[in-house]
Amino acid sequence: MTAIALRVNQLLDRRSLPVAQLLLRVITAAFAAILVIGALTTEGFLSVDNVKAILGSTAFVGIIAVGITVIMLSGNLFSLSLGTTTAVCAMLFLFALQAGIVVAIVATVALGAVLGAAQGLLIGSIGANAIIVTIGAGALQEGGAVWASGGSAVFPPKNAPGMSFLADTILGVPFAVYVLVVLAVAGEYLMRRTRFGREIYLMGENKRAARAAALPIVALTAGAFAVAGACAAIAGVLIGAFNQNASLLVSGTFTYDAIAAALVGGSVVTGGRGSIARTVAGAVVIATISDLLLLRGYSTGVQILVKGAVVLVVVVLLHINQREGER
């Protein structure tokens, strides 16, 4: 407690602190207080089972968000077709299971990567706006999926080969959570240590400078979208296995939830700054809030409302704070 008192004193002492920063700190503190109080007073929140539940509900969105972060870091805003890609990939996965589980997984991830890369190529080569291209590409994917499936949901073949592990839990934690952890760690490594990752950060920070310095803009953009497509495909595989059926309805709110996770994590929409780890943290924060509201018996409407409010407040404050920092 003395540490907190000291901190408060420090805060009050710095009169020159810009208002926005002060506001950010106050709201962050209030937010943390609400969370702590909520956690302490809500029955069942601080239990191992609930932590597992939070992680479980984060996994699918988190996996897609890892991919969307790479796009965001590359300075191409975000893709609005990743949810559709997830659904299309879930459908392909269940369909392709008749050729065996390994073939199905490889084919699905490849499809996701190709779908992403194609959009990235278009965006990188002609400098098109990512949002517009991905809206169009989303509609194309939807159309293609409806055409190929005849508009009905896809079910796995009878006696489908061992895909149950995809929907299983290990030590009480869903398999998808392990996949998220592995993807997040691998993604961080990709972005921090490889030439591809470093150049994505550079291009996202300043695309004109990247062009003048002859960085491979087209390849990097295609690569970023391919990574995102592959992540969406992996989510599709897991969702298909979990639901045992797949249609376009699968896409749901995945696209927006993934964007929200990246934004709450504090990655900068215009690129270059942020990280996959931050995005995963953002996804966990959002899931924690939803879980808390659920446990306290609030309706779905309230949950969505609060989630929206949190995203809005955090994003605005981070933006203001960042601007102050640049002065």
């Binding site: 950060y201 550079l202 920070e205 300043n206 004109r208 400078a209 990247a210 003048a212 270059g272 700054r273």
Partner: peptide, 8 residues
Amino acid sequence: GEGLFLGH
């Protein structure tokens, strides 16, 4: 605008 990657 066209040279440095300012945030890095």
